[in-house]
């Protein structure tokens, strides 16, 4: 009960969360390998969404280039592993540091020059694309030829070197996403969370209340970038191959942000709900369109679904869903 109170949940919501967790823990034993692979995609989307949500949902700075941090995390840890045999658990920290530095630098440059709003969003795209093209020519990490992690056929999962089955990654990601949930909640409940939200709502008023807006925005970006990079490391060791054009793709940046937006921007559970819905939708469409054999059908329905959501629930599904189920999340 204390845990539920700490998360600001009603008993009913705590029960629902407990049930959800129990199902998630048992799920790999109940479903086939295909479903597990889909669930891994869901958890990646949820975790990346949660990381992005801190920057845009909490602190209100629209970043459209988060693939940059996925890529920096993925490439740093993978390259250290391939070239020096460094364990990904240390490589991950290096990746987070690189991403946090890059994020802070981009944020510092933009906000120092008073680049805000839409301009900031476009600047984040520009940095991501610029980096993608640089990596296309970065021979040490394979350039356009790609960077490959040796695939070992192991009898057992090897968590130390992050070599293993999708089920291992499923549980790692589940833990990661839960940790992100707890962290997000705890941040929102502290001074820093209040300050971020104040900045999101009205920067001038935030300043007048003594908030060093510049510093707090950079902190949000650094944390968000580092968390994203951590997910990038897992992605690299899950996929085993990295190409700049897929890792840093603009399409990935967009994917990262759709889930939290349709789930409910700035809410704790929105990114998770959005990830389930979006991945489920995508998989269904893929299966349907293979059945009908019409290329483009999948994207068409996907677009139509996005349109329906933004028309019917523009502030996201989670606020609506939690009300409908009686799991009222306190207003943020």
């Amino acid at each position: 009960m204390r845990a539920s109170r700490a998360l600001g949940l009603s008993p009913r919501a705590a029960a629902a969360l407990g049930l959800f967790l129990a199902v998630m823990l048992l799920l790999p034993f109940l479903v086939n390998a295909y479903i597990v692979s889909v669930l891994v995609v869901v958890l990646f989307a949820a975790y990346f969404g949660q990381s992005w949500n801190i920057m845009t949902g909490f602190a209100g700075q629209l970043s459209l280039g988060h693939a940059l941090y996925v890529g920096l995390g993925a490439y740093t840890s993978a390259a250290l592993f391939v070239h020096f045999g460094l364990t990904p658990w240390l490589g991950m920290i290096a990746g987070m540091a690189v991403a946090a530095l890059a994020g802070s630098a981009i944020a510092a440059l933009s906000f120092r020059f008073r680049v805000g709003g839409v301009y900031f969003a476009l600047l984040t795209i520009a940095f991501a694309e610029f980096t993608r093209i640089l990596f296309d020519h970065f021979g040490w990490v394979g350039a356009t030829e790609g960077l490959f992690l040796p695939v070992a056929n192991l009898a057992h999962d090897d968590p130390v070197r992050l070599r293993g089955s999708p089920v291992m990654f499923y549980y790692l990601l589940l833990v990661l996403s839960l940790a992100a949930l707890v962290l997000s909640h705890s941040l929102l409940d502290r001074r820093v969370g209040y300050y971020w939200q104040a900045i999101r709502e009205d920067e001038e008023a935030a300043r007048a209340l003594g908030i060093d807006v510049f510093r707090y925005k950079i902190a949000a970006m650094a944390l968000s970038a580092a968390m994203t990079a951590l997910g990038g490391t897992l992605l690299a060791f899950y996929d085993n191959n990295l190409y700049p054009d897929t890792v840093f793709a603009m399409g990935r940046s967009i994917e990262i942000i759709i889930a939290p937006i349709i789930g409910g921007l700035g809410t704790l559970f929105g990114p998770i709900v959005g990830a389930f819905l979006l991945t489920g939708l995508g998989e269904t469409m893929t299966n349907l369109s293979t059945y009908f054999e019409i290329s483009g059908l999948k994207q068409w329905f996907y677009g139509a679904a996005l349109l329906a959501i933004v028309a019917l629930q523009p502030s996201g599904l989670w606020p609506w869903l939690s009300r409908a189920l009686g799991l009222w999340e306190r207003r943020r």
């Binding site: 001074r191 209040y194 300050y195 939200q197 104040a198 999101r200 709502e201 009205d202 001038e204 008023a205 935030a206 209340l209 003594g210 908030i211 700035g266 207003r331 943020r332």
Partner: peptide, 17 residues
Amino acid sequence: KPFGALSVLQNVMVGAF
């Protein structure tokens, strides 16, 4: 310039922090 999405109490807490 209220922080519209925050509650009245949270608005004042931002100041109190």
